[in-house]
Simulated scan of single mutants.
Amino acid sequence: MWKVTDGIGREKTAGLEVGGRKVALMVGERTRDGWRVVGRGVAVADGVRNGRIVSVPRVGKSIEAAAAMVEDAFGVGLPPVLVGISGNHFCSRSVEGFVSLPHREMRSDDVRRLKEVVLSGIDRRNDMIHLLPLEYEMDDENSGLANPLGKSGKKLAGEFLMLSASAAHRNSLQSARRRAGLEIKGMAPSCLAGVKSVLTPDEAEQGVVLIDCGKDVTDMAFCYRQRVFHLESMDYGAGRVTAEMSRKLQTSANEIERILAGPYRQKNAELQVRTYGPHGTHLLVRQEVKSLLRKCLLAYLREVNRHIDRSFSRNILLMGAVLSGGGALFPEIGRLAELVLAMPVQTRDAGFLSVKDDKQESPAGPAWATAIGLAELALFGNDDTKGDLAWL
């Protein structure tokens, strides 16, 4: 495990999210009860467009600004970071393998040997960032095993989820972090981080899909029997909602966000919007904004629903869906998602934010799910990127 300790031996890790809207950096430390956030920094994501890094120097400056905020405001040194990868920069597929064994009780080195056999048959291993176990099988009989240790048999087979990342995107992230003076010790799909920070073990056991509603991309992680068995991504982010509303109302996306975050939520407030037209500012009818928001959200959610159908896993998602990311903050998105997806939908905070020597903790909204989850994965996961990722 990668780690940095302070003067009294407390282990620290960090997670870095480079999103379409913000660069977020979280530093966590291990405690007797688990872990807590001890530093956080955020900066505008400059140099990122449609989920892709278009300017390494500008992204590097954004990362540097977030890192400076952590060090200046919280007095926390920065350990090596686990970086999130989202969108079509990563992909997943199922791989299988088996090994013959002497007839005895299964040991951890047998599982390790099985992974080596699986890895030996994988092309382009340099693109792989994680190999997650799905299930094991003993002697073609005991199938669906989550953990084969302690079982006896002559043959051990296993199915794994292989996660690969685009070499070009990884190189861009490496270049950006070098400009910011950070050390990267690993990478992971951003939606796995959301699984760690948002979902409960019961949801992951009974079947659930985490939908990370980012600005430019939407990532989905499908969980069942406490395993991530499928990842899905679409180049259609929640930012399309504000973009379409701004086009219809002839104003900026920032102005739409201001209205939805403030006046729209106040029942009797006037909805004044600054437009590009010759009249400057004019009043909007609340029902007009509500109708337009509903139309744009429904278009976005129908696209999400199409990707869920493509996963062929709807019948095992007994716990429905959980929304995270900045798009989960849209008014009424939860209710509309239940109508479109035809399943229970929740929007949940990603734990709590706290700082060192501060007894007050504040809820971390859905927009912080990825950064918090990355810090937690870095703390409790495995630093061997060719091995397991202990996300639960």
Rank of each mutant, 00 (worst) to 15 (best):
V340S: 08
L339Y: 11
D358A: 14
K386F: 08
G334E: 12
L119E: 13
P102W: 13
S166K: 08
M234V: 14
R274Y: 03
L163M: 15
A375Q: 04
A238P: 01
V18W: 03
P366F: 13
S354V: 09
L392I: 00
C91D: 04
F160Y: 15
V76L: 13
G207N: 10
K290I: 06
L389R: 02
F90K: 06
G7R: 13
E338V: 05
Q226R: 15
M1F: 02
N50E: 10
V241W: 00
V117Y: 14
H282D: 08
M106E: 15
L323R: 01
S233G: 12
R225M: 08
D140L: 08
K386Q: 07
A165Q: 13
Q346V: 03
L173N: 08
I184K: 08
R49M: 12
M220V: 13
G87I: 11
I211N: 00
H130F: 09
S172Q: 12
V54S: 02
F312D: 07
G28C: 14
K267D: 12
R314T: 15
V285A: 04
S108G: 01
S197M: 11
S166G: 08
S233R: 12
D123Q: 15
L379K: 01
A193Q: 10
G325F: 02
E244M: 03
V18F: 08
E232T: 04
G181L: 04
R177P: 01
E203W: 04
T281C: 02
S92P: 13
S246H: 02
V228T: 06
S291Q: 07
E232K: 03
M162G: 11
S108D: 08
D349M: 08
A371H: 01
Q250V: 15
E29P: 05
Q346N: 06
P133H: 13
E105K: 12
I85A: 13
N382Y: 12
I53N: 07
L199V: 07
W391I: 10
S324T: 07
L271I: 04
V209W: 00
L374Q: 03
M245A: 05
V118D: 02
C223H: 02
